[in-house]
Structures are given as structure tokens and as C-alpha cells.
Design a protein around this nucleic acid. Sequence first.
DNA 1: GCTCATCGGCAAAACGAATA
DNA 2: TATTCGTTTTGCCGATGAGC
Length: 239
Amino acid sequence: MTKHTEEFKEFVSQGINKEYFIGIGNPYANILFVGKESAIKKNEVERMSQYLKNANEWRGYIENNSCEILNYPVENGHVLRAGWGKNTWSKYQKLTDIIFEKEMKPFHVDFLENVFTTEINDSPEKNTANADKTGLNERKQLFKESKFIQNFPVVVLACSNYIRNNDKIREIDKIFGVKFVDGKQYTSANWFYTHYSEDGKKLVIHTRQLSANVKPELLKDMGQIIRQHLDRIQLFNNN
DNA sequence: GCTCATCGGCAAAACGAATA
DNA sequence: TATTCGTTTTGCCGATGAGC
């Protein structure tokens, strides 16, 4: 049984009116993963229709005080099976295993129990290069205004160049109310930056898309930073 | 001990984005 | 518009481990 909060209900009902994607996972997890966009090909009609139904499905779960399935095996024939070990969700699973010091299960998704995932681009496309990015700013504004999104104490922005923090543009600072603290660079394509809120309660990590060619050290280091932050949050809550 | 399947890592190709 | 640059995707190869 899940008693849904007003913040989440608000996010979902707006998602039905404005026809936007809500996300997948546990809405009350401490961690939010933000990817680029869902990798759905033009000919995958079934998956696309599933994507478009997302907000309506959440409305159903809200009405029943229930939630979607967060724990399942990736069997032969499953869309995630072929690229497992390389695809985004297997990396999300690996990172979450590190954060919670869980044993790696082969071909199994259960990170959704501890994570909510969504996309910064609401236009699915097989290759990020071809994706329609015209809706990015509107979606960033939505994230900024949504209490549901802002409540996550840990946000991983795994969407590299879809969001920017540089000398002139400080999108991450503005949208999430944080400031840059530290950065790690492994190779030109393997890096992440940490940002914290003034009171130290919120951690926002900016990194590349988590899929093939992500170094294990990157996931390990990032996972440990998130773990430490969650420990600290516990301290806040106990005081 | 051998074979096969799977996973991880590397490198090159492909593709946009940025720049001039 | 041409060129360069950076990132993502793809294919290949070797290491590893399970099953026979």
C-alpha cells in the first residue's frame, strides 16, 4: 500500500493535462535519476504507446494507493536483455547496487525500489543526436517549479550537454538551488560534478549519459558520494 | 579440462554542435 | 558553409565463469 502525497498527485495531474512524461520507479525514493530521453525507435509502437500512457498509469496507481512493479528479472526477449551490461538501465542498476552495497544480481532490475527515474527530454528517440530538443526549456522550468522534483535529496543529472553549468550559464544552480563543489575527470568522456544546496541537504550530480563506456571507477566514486550524502541526511532527520 | 556464453573495455566510426 | 571538436554508438576482442 502506498499513500501518495499531494506533491506527487500535483505532478501527475499536471502531467495528464499538459501531456508530459512522469517517470518510472519509486516516487518516494531519496534518489532521482534524470536521463536524456527514452531510447524508443520509430517502429516500436507498443513501447511508444506505453510511454505516452505513463501519466495516466500513475493516476491509476494514485487512485488505488498502489505502485508499479519495481523488481523483476530481465528475461530472454526483454527489451533490456540484449544490451544488458551496456545499456542505461543496467548502469543505473549497477550504480544503485554500489550506493546501497547490494550484491549484483545478473539480469535483474530492482534499483527502482530505491530510485525514481525520469527524462529531461520528453521526446523519445533511438539516438540522442536525432532527438527533438525543442521542449527542453519547458521541461527544465517544470522541474524547477515542481515540489515533487525539488524534494529529492539526491539528483543525478545523467544527461551531459542537455543541461549546462559554465562560466555564463548556471542552469543547474538555478533549477535545483545548488552550488558547484567538486568535480572528477577520468577521461574526456568520463566525468561528474557535485553540487550542494546551501544547507547541505541536497546533492545534485551532473554527469554524462550512463550507458556504454562509462568507467566502473566513475560509478564506484559516484555511488560512494551518494551513499555518504544519504548517511548525512539521516543525521539531519534524527536531529 | 574444454567449450560456449556473457561481460567489460577499448578503439574507431558516426554524428551533432560549435566555431570561424 | 567548411572544418574542427567532443560525445555517443557500434563492433570487436579478451577475460571470466558456468556447464558439460
